[in-house]
Amino acid sequence: MTRVEAWLKAAVEDGAGRGLEDVRPLLEGLARATRALRAAPWNERAISLLERRPAPVAGNAGERDE
């Protein structure tokens, strides 16, 4: 199970537990957006913009989703 899928499952369960079943489609839409954000090709280059450091060497960029 990918990280986004695990997150979505937990979020939907949390929402349902609080009587917010209607939040599920919104969370599913957010999950799609999160996958797109994480998969965007500019992520490594953009690290240096905020943290003001060189982008990490390829292979050290951390865990990625699909």
């Binding site: 997150w7 929402g15 992520n43 280059r45």
Partner: peptide, 23 residues
């Protein structure tokens, strides 16, 4: 519902998005 949805955004994705905004 949208405010409730926002509570589930992970901090790492917020930071990714702020990097994307700068780009």
């Amino acid at each position: 519902l949208r405010l409730e949805m926002g509570r589930f955004v992970l901090a790492e994705d917020y930071v990714r998005a702020q990097r994307g905004a700068l780009l």
